[in-house]
Amino acid sequence: MTGINRREFIQRSVKAGLVSASALGAGWWLHDTAPPALEPSARALAGLPDFSRPYDGRPAMAIAKGTDRETLVMRAIGALGGMARFVRPGDRVVVKVNAAFASAPAICATSHPELVTAVVKACFNAGAADVVVTDNPINDPASCFRLTGIGPAAEAAGGRVALPTADQFAGVTLAGARLIRDWPVLVGPLGDADCLIGLAALKDHHRSGASMTIKNWYGLLGGRRNVFHQDIHTIITELAALVRPTLVILDAVTAMMHNGPTGGSVSDLARTNTLIAGVDPVAVDAAGAEILGRELSGLPHLRQAADAGLGTLDYRTLNPVNVP
């Protein structure tokens, strides 16, 4: 720099110093020393326990046809080798139902109470020491379990209903996941469980195209999970990786063909008279998609899950047992 004398240099230096000091002071003054409060989870869990059973050569999937849910589920599970294949004497079983909405069973937006009763009974008959029925519903949990009939049905069969309370959630991170990272998950009921059974209803879904057994795990998420609706197929794929169940059951006796996931009218429903049980949720959902009349191209989460090695998209290659 040329043409500057000592006095000007000092004046400019002082001005620059004042500006810098003002900026630093403003930053210090505006600094928020109280960060947002977090849930009391000191450290995110690395995934969930794997509840799946090693492949033992027995059928991976059964498709039962009929109208009576209790009969169908017993036939389907029987075709897979009986509930004893999945539940050992003394096991603690968690049944993850779909109790998302406080709606009546006739709407078929939630797991049907008759099916809940049948599955809980079957678990006890296989020697389960405890059967917990749980979900983190969209609406008020107590109302959901009561009005759907799921709560009374579970308790009538000897099961326990575990309503989601804040202390039952913990942050969970799925390795390699984009969305499930230190996200609150309903882990409390799973903590000392030996078996996890998913009990889903076959439904249309406005965002994901269909709601089946994998989408049912969405009910394990806490927090403002609706943000995931903007990336619904990714979150369902990640749920397929996060949750490795012992058994999944898809109730397609009456399917919600339109206006899902809430429905609201019995005219949204169709008698599809099918119940599918299996150990491969991707395969079970692929079969469910057919019943719902959905192309797999419209359900990218299924292909993504299959590509990730989480299941079989072409369910017929599993040679499902067709139960009349």
Binding site: E39, D140, P164, A166, D182, P184, G222, G223, V227
Partner: peptide
């Protein structure tokens, strides 16, 4: 980060 800013597990209606 929604995991940090939106961790209300059971919002009241």
């Amino acid at each position: 980060n929604p995991a940090v800013t939106a961790r209300q597990t059971l919002p009241e209606a």
